[in-house]
Write a protein that binds this DNA or RNA. Structure first.
Length: 225
DNA sequence: AACCATGGCAACCGCTCAGGA
DNA sequence: ATCCTGAGCGGTTGCCATGGT
């Protein structure tokens, strides 16, 4: 009865973050369910995975969405619907959770306001024609995004853990943090990676464990998925 | 100054899918 | 071919901060 480890819930403490980050950077995540055991965390694997993907993963941006990012989300949402993970693939450094939250809190209203105009242009989303044009638009979205974002005048969102990443990671196009950082996105990443910024937004930013030198060493040598 | 409403964000839950035994 | 397990995804909830009254 009582010999099952109780899994902690709720917000992550800085100590938990550090344990998880150090473990994943060192060993990777072959099996998420074994991560909390080996990292000595009172969490379940699912929670660890979510925390890593949404908050600890290197290269994450934080802060406001740029106008271009919002346009991208709106465009892709019109094409794909609530496929947040697919939308997130087009926005390097943004998580599906973050995009989803931003959609529900802000963009949904924008989309509703814009709806009457779009209806006349797009017609019925379920039609074959729509799907074809959606694919075209998706390709366009893939290609236009990095270039346009580079040239955008608004302050860019900061990238988390940028201090972990050496210029080599960027210039060689080998930043496989998301598995989809191709050279296509290099331009975008170069625009973000060296932003000065706190690695931790939100509640724990006064106690930033990411600046730990040993961690960045580990990242440079071991981080590969 | 205190209370209430609202918005934003982090995390959890449940379902689905894929891979392996 | 079937079952089991783990990973991934989307929806939902809860908490906290902020603004308004």
């Amino acid at each position: 009865m009582g010999d099952k480890p109780k899994h902690r819930k709720g917000l992550w403490s800085p100590e938990e973050d550090q344990k998880l980050r150090n473990y994943v950077l060192k060993h990777g995540h072959v099996c998420w369910s074994s991560v909390p055991v080996n990292a000595e965390l009172q969490r379940n694997g699912k929670s660890c995975r979510l925390r890593w993907l949404n908050y600890l993963r290197p290269g994450l941006k934080r802060g406001l969405f740029s106008a271009q990012e919002e346009e991208t989300v709106l465009t892709l949402h019109r094409m794909l619907g609530n496929k947040w993970s697919q939308i997130a693939q087009h926005l390097p450094g943004r998580t599906d959770n973050e995009i989803k939250n931003h959609w529900h809190s802000y963009l949904k209203k924008r989309a509703l306001i814009a709806e009457p105009q779009n209806k006349t242009q797009c017609g019925n989303p379920s039609s074959d024609h729509y799907i074809d044009s959606a694919k075209t638009l998706e390709n366009q979205a893939k290609s236009y995004q990095p270039a346009t974002m580079q040239g955008f005048g608004l302050p860019e969102p900061e990238v988390l853990f940028a201090e972990w990443l050496t210029p080599d990671h960027v210039h060689h196009g080998s930043l496989d943090v998301f598995g989809n950082y191709s050279s296509l996105e290099d331009g975008l990443m170069q625009g973000h990676l060296f932003n000065e910024g706190t690695a931790f937004g939100g509640k724990y930013d006064t106690n930033n464990p990411a600046s730990d030198a040993s961690t960045s060493d580990v990242f440079g040598s071991v981080f590969k998925f």
